[in-house]
Simulated scan of single mutants.
Amino acid sequence: WIVNGRVLFDRNEYVAELIDRLNTFPFAERKLKIGLEYGKLIRRYVEGKAFFEANQFLDAYNAVVHALHHLARIEVIDRGFHPETTVWSQVRQMEPQVYKLYSELIESHESLEKRLELLFLANDFLIHSKAEIGSAHLFEVMKEKDIWQFGELLQHHDLKHFTQDLGVMLDYLTEKGLINVCQIETKGQAVYHRGY
């Protein structure tokens, strides 16, 4: 509505600047949105894998569909576009590999368990391949100092939108060796804080 609508009144050129910002989609905003989607992707993937391992295949299926949706949104944003509600028609043209995963999950005649098993293998690779762009915003913040505690990251103004997915994201990036964990001494004997 904002981009395609006709502006009847624009005090202080606010709407014109908003339209320009939406059309150009600045890199900093893209990096933040990709980071947010990446955190959601990891959370859904981890939830789906836990459901799968507990033989809760319908819940795993639901989580994987949501994970693929976040992956699709990352692909669209990475190419400089805003994801639309019909994101799969965008992704079909931009990244056929992700669209193929989605269509195989939805339309395949294999058993649900087999479809999910194959998808988790492919998703693990895709999530890891997107780690650099998906974590760019978080890594930029973490460069501000050598060691961070989880609470400090949660309080950082540039990570205020990450609060829901930050823990899962840090765990995943630590597991993949992209973030190092260290122990920070406390006043208690043999009790340490976890630092990143």
Results as ranks from 00 to 15, higher is better:
residue 2 I to T: 08
residue 2 I to Q: 07
residue 4 N to W: 12
residue 8 L to M: 15
residue 15 V to K: 02
residue 16 A to H: 05
residue 16 A to R: 03
residue 16 A to F: 05
residue 16 A to N: 06
residue 21 R to T: 09
residue 27 F to K: 14
residue 31 K to I: 08
residue 36 L to Y: 12
residue 39 G to K: 01
residue 42 I to G: 00
residue 43 R to T: 13
residue 45 Y to T: 09
residue 46 V to Y: 05
residue 50 A to V: 10
residue 50 A to H: 06
residue 56 Q to W: 06
residue 60 A to V: 05
residue 64 V to K: 00
residue 65 V to F: 07
residue 69 H to G: 15
residue 69 H to W: 13
residue 72 A to Q: 01
residue 73 R to W: 13
residue 73 R to K: 15
residue 75 E to W: 01
residue 79 R to W: 04
residue 79 R to T: 02
residue 87 V to G: 05
residue 88 W to A: 00
residue 90 Q to E: 05
residue 91 V to D: 02
residue 102 Y to D: 00
residue 102 Y to A: 00
residue 102 Y to H: 03
residue 104 E to S: 04
residue 106 I to P: 00
residue 108 S to E: 00
residue 109 H to L: 09
residue 110 E to T: 08
residue 113 E to A: 05
residue 114 K to C: 11
residue 116 L to W: 01
residue 118 L to V: 11
residue 127 I to T: 00
residue 128 H to T: 09
residue 132 E to H: 10
residue 140 E to G: 15
residue 143 K to E: 09
residue 144 E to V: 15
residue 145 K to D: 03
residue 146 D to E: 10
residue 148 W to H: 04
residue 148 W to T: 02
residue 151 G to T: 07
residue 152 E to P: 06
residue 152 E to H: 08
residue 165 D to P: 02
residue 171 D to W: 09
residue 177 G to M: 02
residue 183 Q to S: 15
residue 189 Q to L: 15
residue 193 H to K: 14
